[in-house]
């Protein structure tokens, strides 16, 4: 067991160090949600009226509404980014180093996943701190309760990234995936507008949003920020995590996935 933890620690530290070294990535990861918060939300505030819906107990401004969605966005981008780095690692060979370690493969992949989650949570907290500096703050206990929610949602989104990385052979395919995964997931969720608003324009769209696991990740975060648990969202996120994780383990199984696709290794 000790050996497993040693490997986990090293993998998480390496990911964190890589993230801190790449300052531009850190800044980009923060600027993206802040632009949404400061520019988009300010413009939208007048256009979009919100009624009182749980977990809110009073009227809220639009900026307050989209904060959990933007936390989710950070994790979504992060999950995809770590899967991008996995594809990159595989092309560069360092993934091989990981996969030839004498520890169980599922544990190595799970460690890699946790490393990405740790980095994403770091970003979310910095974002929440900046939002608070702009006057958009949550009840103090919310900052505590949101931690486990972020772990679960981060694992789910990271596992999705892992699954995608196991099916992609080359980096070039990745840009397409960004467009086909990140944007639909983000826009067809409750990150920017509540479900009842969506239903006013299209019931079908509402239904899509309601099954989108990202919606449930956002709701899980939203409720946690106000100190309550959304059981339904929790269940959905955990289920989605299991499905994505099992899928990626199959994808990285040497007898099934990966190198078997296409022409295999060099010669």
């Amino acid at each position: 067991m000790m050996r497993w933890l040693v490997a986990l620690r090293a993998i998480v530290l390496r990911e964190a160090m890589r993230f801190i070294n790449q300052r531009s990535r850190f800044v980009a990861a923060l600027v993206r949600p802040l632009v949404w918060l400061v520019v988009f939300a300010a413009g939208f505030r007048a256009a979009l009226g919100l009624s009182i819906i749980p977990p809110y107990q009073t009227y809220i401004t639009y900026e307050v509404y989209i904060v959990p969605g933007l936390c989710g966005m950070i994790q979504l981008f992060n999950g995809m980014q770590s899967s991008l780095s996995l594809v990159y690692d595989r092309e560069m060979g360092s993934m091989r180093l990981l996969l030839t370690s004498p520890l169980p493969r599922w544990w190595l992949l799970f460690s890699k996943l946790l490393a990405g989650v740790a980095v994403s949570i770091l970003q979310v907290y910095v974002f929440l701190a900046i939002a608070a500096a702009f006057g958009i703050s949550m009840p103090w206990s919310g900052y505590l309760y949101v931690f486990p929610a972020l772990v679960i949602s981060g694992l789910m989104l990271g596992a999705l990234g892992l699954l995608i990385s196991s099916t992609i052979r080359q980096l070039e395919n990745f840009a397409g995936v960004m467009n086909f995964v990140i944007f639909p997931m983000f826009f067809m969720s409750t990150a920017l507008y509540p479900l009842w608003r969506m239903a006013e324009s299209s019931v079908l769209l509402r239904d899509i949003c309601a099954v989108n696991p990202f919606t449930h990740a956002v709701e899980l975060i939203r409720f946690a920020l106000y100190g309550s648990v959304n059981g339904m969202a929790l269940l959905w996120v955990v289920l989605a995590f299991l499905v994505f994780m099992i899928g990626s383990l199959i994808g990285y199984d040497p007898s099934r996935g990966m190198a078997r696709k296409g022409r295999g290794p060099g010669s």
Binding site: R9, I11, G93, L103
Partner: peptide
Amino acid sequence: GVVFQQQTLDLDMTVLQNLRYFAALQGLS
């Protein structure tokens, strides 16, 4: 012990960090 055709060092880490990372992947601490 494996040496792959592609290089598998993390170029942004120091020599020592690279060795430590690998040792940890082997469960050594």
